[in-house]
Design a protein around this nucleic acid. Sequence first.
DNA 1: GTCTATACACGGATAGAC
DNA 2: GTCTATCCGTGTATAGAC
Lengths: 202, 202
Amino acid sequence: MTNSARASARGAGKRRRLAAAAARVLHEQGAERTTIADIAAAADVPVGNVYYYFKTKDELIQAALTEHAGNLAELTGELDKLADPRRRLKSLVEAWVGQRDTAARYGCPTGTLAVELDKRAEGGLDVEAGRVVRLLLDWVERQFRELGLPDPDDLALTFVGAYQGMSLLANALRDPEVMTRQGARLTRWLDSLDGTGERPAG
Amino acid sequence: MTNSARASARGAGKRRRLAAAAARVLHEQGAERTTIADIAAAADVPVGNVYYYFKTKDELIQAALTEHAGNLAELTGELDKLADPRRRLKSLVEAWVGQRDTAARYGCPTGTLAVELDKRAEGGLDVEAGRVVRLLLDWVERQFRELGLPDPDDLALTFVGAYQGMSLLANALRDPEVMTRQGARLTRWLDSLDGTGERPAG
DNA sequence: GTCTATACACGGATAGAC
DNA sequence: GTCTATCCGTGTATAGAC
């Protein structure tokens, strides 16, 4: 292994640590209140060194978004192993409810970030956030389509919207129980949908 | 009228203008990215003068929250004139859909503010934001209770959560149509609820 | 009560030694 | 590739003239 290759390997490791730390810290503190120093400390990388990997704070935020997209892809990849699309969606709800304490404390990672980035429209980061939301929306829509339900895109909006809404309320009220109760309701809703027609308002 | 009384009247006017401007600008730009100067300019008050009315930025944010609470009280006050609670809720949905362009551009005023303030937990402003959300929640719950529906508190969480969720998605996707479509779904849901029992997941 | 000037802190970003 | 020192812009808040 050459010196530069070894250096790259170390570098890639640090880069990855920074991206992961960015995702975590930005979720907990919000994009505006998080400083480069915060992320550097969380990643255990010297502050000044950060700029070698990411030229601007926006690039770090972008990395966090990519990280979130990756986490999502990993999760849906697991769920895809289940045979029944309805089962997949119900498992997703279970995963969300499992994160209830985090949701009550910090909200949905992508949702809260999207809210903040929409007010930071300069670097086009708002569009990027929308893209990550779209990833989830599209995957959910695919499940409803496989179930043969009408208007799968609307159903996906309702489903993901319900998640975003309950996360926001759980966060605003600082109450994890909101996730539990609304999660149960969402599961019952999934059960109530049949392949022949649509129930009003989901 | 004494001099000081006249001064108070002028002062109260400016104070009110500042509070209203704070509510508007904080919604559009977000709490962190909004400077005192921004609010002063929007209220047409000289920057340096702001501190006479509000000692800190947090006090200005608090004033904006009070403003939002006032707007909400005004709206529900109007809706209360309608005889049927179901009609009241449907009118509320109509009002939300009527704001679809604003929602797509800036999200729900209280919701987005609550998200941001939750990451600004020092001054206890996060709790204040939760209080405003509670006002809406309580009013909605009262309507469901009047309709004789079971678990009115859960229904209120579903209803308000749906609104917060659709606002966030409309905002993230920058698409007002999300509000229209999900609003219609919410209306159909209200119609599907009867006084005798509860439909699964709303 | 109104407004100007400014102190002061903080955070993003860069230069350049190692 | 790593790290320190520092520049510089910006924004909150205050002092004090009017």
